[in-house]
Design a protein around this nucleic acid. Structure first.
Lengths: 208, 208
DNA sequence: AGCTTTCGCTACGAGTCGTAGCGTAATACC
DNA sequence: GGTATTACGCTACGACTCGTAGCGAAAGCT
């Protein structure tokens, strides 16, 4: 999780408790101070560790916040709710519930902004946050194809394109709704969104 | 555009050239340094003005970058391309062309992140960036309803909900594709996206 | 002219950054 | 148990940025 986990077998091991304390303190500081006013010195004080300890484990503020925010997304799951529409609504509501939390709002967009100039950071975000969400899309799509709600796509290249597209549409819409428009992705919005996603603007209007 | 335009009619007027120079210097600094390493002192030097002049016009880094980035979106237009699908593809390609520019990538997400803790900043972003995009959605939808491609929605409240939803889906998908997934929203992607948006996941697959 | 406001410049205290050095604590190996 | 090795807490440091204050000069309005 940290920048590097050396295969050193000798010497005093790193405190696992310090890790959890630091990440929790980071989220706490994100809530109280936000991204721009968050300082590593303050996080170290909150966590009860020395500032040097923090720098020994993380390269900087970006990497630390990525790890702290990534843990928020661990709770994402995709229970089988019987239909594609119900599955989408369920996972979108979960996703929205995470995004309204202030530690997620403040931190996630900031590290994404930084990742536009830092490829290593982008890869770190992809591996620890985005990939998990992508797996949910894959799982939900495969489940829908088994149910016959979506046609199978034999061409692997086109299939990958479709999965990417769905992922950007779902995650992008929820993020934009929550963070840019600043409105809640509540049950009503999620219902409308799912209808448009499945049936399209033209089809959804006919069934309204 | 700046923080306040006092109705002072006497005295030396503010240099309009300084404004454009400062905003251009801000975008230049965003490209070279990115959001986090951008300093107001550096921007002032690039623009050839004193640091104090900059602080007299903008409250801080957030407000300055919002204004600098907002000018990038002035070129957004919605020419009538004959069909709803063509209109969407056209405006999405324009939007994507702006978002790939490094000054937009670095700056936009950062100020959105900051706006999660600053209501005044959020309103500033809404007024100078988001509102313009929202108008395009309204215009395109009205045009499609005249063509008969979309059914009219008499209920103003439901109509507003639909416009908000479309806006979040379109803008969110493009932003997520460009900034989070880090892939280009090229013609092929835009075509697939438009098809899903109009026909839905189920309908789009049938016509693939 | 006279008045008002802006501009450029310099300087300043405050705060943060990331690192180095040191002594101590905790574990693995012999 | 002794020893090597690493992590830890603490302090201190130079470098940098921040945002503001004060000053004299410049530019425009009446």
């Amino acid at each position: 999780m940290q920048s590097r986990t050396p295969a050193s077998r000798t010497g005093r091991p790193r405190s696992a408790a310090a890790d959890t304390a630091i990440l929790a303190a980071t989220r706490e500081a994100l809530v109280e101070l936000g991204w721009s006013k968050l300082t590593l010195g303050d996080v170290a004080t909150r966590a009860g560790v020395a500032k040097t300890t923090l720098y020994r484990r993380w390269a900087g503020k970006n990497e630390l916040v990525v790890d702290a925010v990534a843990e928020l997304f661990d709770e994402l799951e995709l229970p089988d709710r019987g239909s594609l529409a119900a599955d989408i609504e369920g996972v979108v509501l979960q996703f929205a519930a995470i995004l309204v939390r202030p530690e997620a709002k403040s931190g996630l967009m900031a590290v994404v902004a930084e990742s536009t100039r830092d490829d290593a950071l982008r890869e770190r975000i992809r591996a620890s946050i985005v990939e998990r969400q992508m797996c949910l899309v894959l799982e939900g799509r495969a489940r829908a194809q088994l149910r016959g709600e979506l046609p199978p796509e034999p061409d692997p290249e086109e299939s990958a394109r479709t999965v990417d597209l769905i992922f950007d549409m779902v995650a992008g819409a929820v993020v934009h709704r929550t963070l840019v428009s600043g409105k809640a992705a509540d049950a009503e919005w999620v219902r409308d969104f799912t209808r448009v996603l499945l049936l399209g603007l033209t089809g959804a209007a006919r069934e309204a």
